[in-house]
């Protein structure tokens, strides 16, 4: 990854508090990044399709996806991403509070790149975000384009 170009991270979460926590956790990260937030699945798909008001949206380098959201849920968004030849190579990490095995299994069957449960305390949460960032944006080699 070029150090000059910031990484584009799409955070799909209906809780603005979580979006903010993710932002705060990644702010001091080693990789320069730009966080884009979508409040539900509908917005996330609009972002990917560059529909209004996201006409100038970039192609995300990483998607952090919550599951329980109003309107279009996380699993539907995941399926849409993995069904699209254009988007399916974008690492999509599920970040949710659900520990239900049905959810976990369903997401991996839909080819989620990882399933992570949000830790309840801030310290662990921040560590998790750093790990995600360093693994997917530094260690992992991803296809270009």
């Amino acid at each position: 990854m070029s150090g000059l170009q910031p990484c584009e991270i799409l955070v799909v979460d209906d809780n603005p508090g979580d979006v903010r926590l993710i932002q705060e956790s990644l702010k001091d990260g080693r990789v320069p990044n730009r966080i884009h937030a979508a409040r539900d699945g509908e917005e996330a798909l609009a972002f990917l399709r560059r529909q209004a008001p996201f006409e100038s949206a970039p192609r995300p380098d990483l998607i952090l996806l919550d599951l329980n959201m109003p309107k279009v849920g996380g699993l539907e968004v995941l399926r849409a991403i993995k069904a699209s030849p254009e988007w399916k190579t974008i690492p999509t990490v599920i970040l949710t509070t659900s520990m239900g095995n049905g959810d976990i299994k369903g997401c991996y069957e839909a080819q989620a790149n990882a399933y992570l449960v949000k830790p309840t305390d801030l310290g662990t949460f921040s560590e998790m975000l750093s790990s995600i960032q360093s693994f997917w944006l530094t260690l992992a080699t991803l296809p270009v384009g």
Binding site: N15, G17, L21, T120, D121, G123
Partner: peptide, 11 residues
């Protein structure tokens, strides 16, 4: 909601 309270007080 508790996670929000605790996280942001910690922050």
């Amino acid at each position: 909601p508790l996670r929000m309270v605790s996280s942001f007080t910690e922050l």
